[in-house]
Design a protein around this nucleic acid. Structure first.
Lengths: 205, 205
DNA sequence: TACAGTACCAAGCAATTGCTTGGTTGGGCA
DNA sequence: TGCCCAACCAAGCAATTGCTTGGTACTGTA
């Protein structure tokens, strides 16, 4: 009976297969060449249609990035929340948060790249204000994790928490610039090495 | 014979004060908004002249970034060479290379940002092939330093050199996104903390 | 058979872009 | 005084851009 047998999620603009396909094509181009630097004709060419035909599916080029970024962010922050709410010890939570990020890079490379490269500029528009909010939210997650780490004695007491947060954030996300899924290193390999360096340093003990 | 008796450096296009001024203005805009996203009218407005007047000083918008990036790179790699050729021990060389980078961020924020954000795209054009070459050169410098560190026992023997190189490179340069000269932290403060984390890790011993 | 809905095409418009061209201005210098 | 020249203006051109409009082909359903 469900009237929704024929799909349609309540919130999101209905998402057909073709729509998702086009968004994936756009995401790759946005990630590789930048948002502003990618034309609607580029996207249409890659999809094998004319540029005008894109507007059958989307309002504007902007609404394409919007949809790409917002749906990715929702998924990512759900994962963060799961870590925060778990009852692992402080160090384990930090490790999980790091691994989770590399996994996101593995599974949503284009989305991460777009966010890294375009968030600052896009965030200036009201429509993308949620990007800045998510950023603040992510900071709170990490500061909480690091604070707990300090208090529990898992982390060395002389750390500047704010700087450490930036260090971890940058280090983790910037890997999207070179990591390629299917390459020699899995995202787990990368996470292992990164955690080794992050936790114990590169110097010989 | 040389009809160029009156001034003119052999290579570089002659560099007047106004020229340098305009390049500094352009660099700031390129760094903040991206190269493609900055119009010649933006630059001209910021300089208080009309867009066409820029072409009295420069061939093209492209030649502006070219000049900005190439002159910065030359200065940076001269500094790297000095470290490589010194007779410090392996660990000291690594520390110096890290500090040198944060100093570059402090002194040439816009140039570093432009290089970080635009190198991939610009590098695809022949004119900017030197960007990729410089990248390879920088990799060689770091791999050499890390190899020496391993051989001398200064670094822990289980490190993946390639991954460690990327880790350091990313961590160091990405700081240009948030570091602001004149802020609470000097570039030396940042370098100190970064080196602490990098060398000894964040975990409690 | 009639009709509706999806996905697309063909053509083009208005704005923005990098850049060009032919001038004007004002200071330095012989 | 006459001339040069760096620095700039005023106007606009050709290409590229995001997006619109009116139409067409095809598919599924009643």
């Amino acid at each position: 009976m469900s009237a929704q047998s024929r799909t349609e999620r309540p919130d999101r603009p209905e998402s057909t297969d073709r729509r998702r396909e086009l968004l994936a094509i756009a995401a790759e181009l946005f990630a590789d060449k930048g948002f502003r630097n990618t034309t609607v004709r580029d996207i249409a060419d890659a999809a094998g249609i004319l540029s005008g035909s894109l507007y059958h599916h989307f309002d504007s080029k902007e609404s394409m990035v919007d949809e790409i970024l917002s749906s990715f962010q929702a998924e990512l922050f759900a994962a963060y929340d799961a870590v925060l709410l778990s009852d692992d010890d402080a160090r384990t939570k930090i490790e999980r948060a790091v691994r989770l990020s590399f996994e996101a890079i593995d599974r949503h490379r284009h989305e991460v790249a777009i966010f890294q490269n375009e968030a600052d500029l896009l965030g200036q528009q009201e429509r993308f204000a949620y990007l800045a909010e998510r950023n603040a939210q992510s900071r709170e997650v990490w500061i909480t994790l690091l604070d707990d780490g300090l208090r529990s004695g898992a982390l060395r007491p002389d750390l500047d928490i704010e700087l450490t947060y930036r260090f971890i954030r940058d280090t983790v996300w910037v890997a999207v610039r070179w990591y390629r899924p299917g390459g020699k290193l899995t995202h787990t390999d990368v996470a292992d090495q990164y955690l080794t360096i992050l936790l114990d340093g590169i110097a010989h003990a």
